[in-house]
Design a protein around this nucleic acid. Structure first.
Length: 363
DNA sequence: GACTCGTGGCG
DNA sequence: TCGCCAAGAGT
């Protein structure tokens, strides 16, 4: 690769802005109906837009929808969310992943409640916890009609293809971002920032998809450089990913005479920060031998192996050996850091999916 | 810029 | 089966 002549230079010579009108007309006809989305010609509630945007970070629409509905039931307004307890918020978020989002969500709600309302421009929004470059632009465009183009994975992909930018990500971010920012130079886009942003999302989600893009029915097929070159499906180019290490651990399901289970709280930050878990060993590269496991158990008991749980995190895979035991009474000292919960109270605990898998093993 | 940080669905 | 992927942010 010749570093002095970036491959995108030729593509960027495509100076004509893609016609926003074609995309907007397509959007008016084919827009997705989503619970946080306002109807045609209506303006969405900033609280709804913000909540959905936080939930949608690195998360599919299908996964978000039930959580979004539940949050609105539990916390109908940003003030209600601000006034809620940490446990209620983390419990409602449990299973959705990336739990720093939930902690920042709560902090952000309190900040907005203190301000009185959401800031209505990019700069103000950008200062809120959990609101970065993308999300501030998305809320500003969708909820406040600011003429900005939020660059998420969809817009990144659409833009890389439109201009045939074949610089590998993440190096290509700046070039793609600069190209994306030109998309609303078109007056029709400038006049409908909210619809234009969401049209780009919908295009990326339903036509300009990562694999097998449906170029034949794309409203921008005539101005797409990648399509013309027959390489749409190959863009954007991504850097090779690191290998995912395999880690190991053991967890203990300890129940007392009343059937209550011993839980503990994880540290407030880091992996699964602030979430509930069953006590267990630290996680390490090597599997644990049985005698090691018994020495790590929270208290002496008749520990039975009940199975194995595998779980894949973003940067490592985890295999947990799960052990169960019943005792008449849980040792007093364990309740210094841990606590007991009845099985029917597990639904309202902030248990991450990893721990739910442990709980669901037949014992 | 490079890491960290979840989860479930899909080809 | 398994790697890839999803409306990224914080450090």
């Amino acid at each position: 690769m010749d570093a002095l002549v970036p491959p995108a230079s030729a593509a960027l010579a495509v100076t004509s802005t893609p016609p926003a009108g074609a995309l907007l007309r397509w959007y008016d006809r084919h827009r997705r109906v989503l619970p946080w989305r306002a109807g045609p010609g209506q303006t969405a509630d900033p609280y709804h837009v913000w909540l959905s945007e936080i939930m949608l970070q690195q998360t599919t629409v299908a996964a978000v929808v039930p959580y979004y509905r539940r949050f609105l039931e539990l916390f109908p307004t940003v003030q209600a969310l601000a006034a809620a307890g940490d446990g209620a918020v983390m419990s409602a978020w449990a299973g959705l992943g990336y739990y720093a989002r939930a902690r920042n969500l709560h902090a952000c709600a309190r900040a907005v409640a203190a301000l009185g309302d959401f800031p209505d421009d990019v700069e103000g929004l950008r200062r809120l916890p959990g609101v970065g470059a993308y999300t501030s632009a998305a809320i500003a465009a969708i909820a406040f009609g600011r003429p900005v183009v939020p660059v998420d994975g969809n817009v990144e992909r659409v833009t890389a293809r439109l201009f045939a930018i074949d610089i590998p990500l993440p190096l290509a971010r700046r070039v793609i971002g600069a190209a994306a920012a030109t998309l609303n130079a078109d007056l029709e886009a400038y006049a409908r920032p909210s619809d234009f942003a969401q049209a780009l999302f919908d295009l990326g989600a339903t036509i300009c998809t990562p694999r097998n893009p449906a170029c034949a029915i794309c409203p921008w097929m005539r101005c797409c450089a990648a399509r013309a070159a027959g390489i749409a499906g190959d863009l954007p180019v991504k850097a090779a990913k690191a290998v995912r290490p395999q880690r190991h651990g053991a967890v203990f399901l300890l129940s007392d005479a009343e059937g209550r289970l011993l839980l503990r709280r994880r540290p407030p930050s880091g992996l699964l920060g602030g979430m509930t878990e069953f006590p267990g060993t630290a996680w390490r590269d090597a599997p644990f031998a049985l005698d090691e496991v018994r020495a790590s158990a929270p208290m002496a008991a008749d520990w039975r192996p009940v199975g194995t749980v595998t779980h894949v995190f973003t940067h490592f895979a985890l295999t947990l050996q799960v052990f169960a035991a019943s005792v008449v009474q849980v040792a007093e000292d364990l309740l210094q850091v841990g606590f007991l919960r009845a099985p029917d109270a597990m639904a309202t605990e902030a248990l991450p999916s990893l721990m739910r898998k442990c709980l669901e093993l037949p014992r």
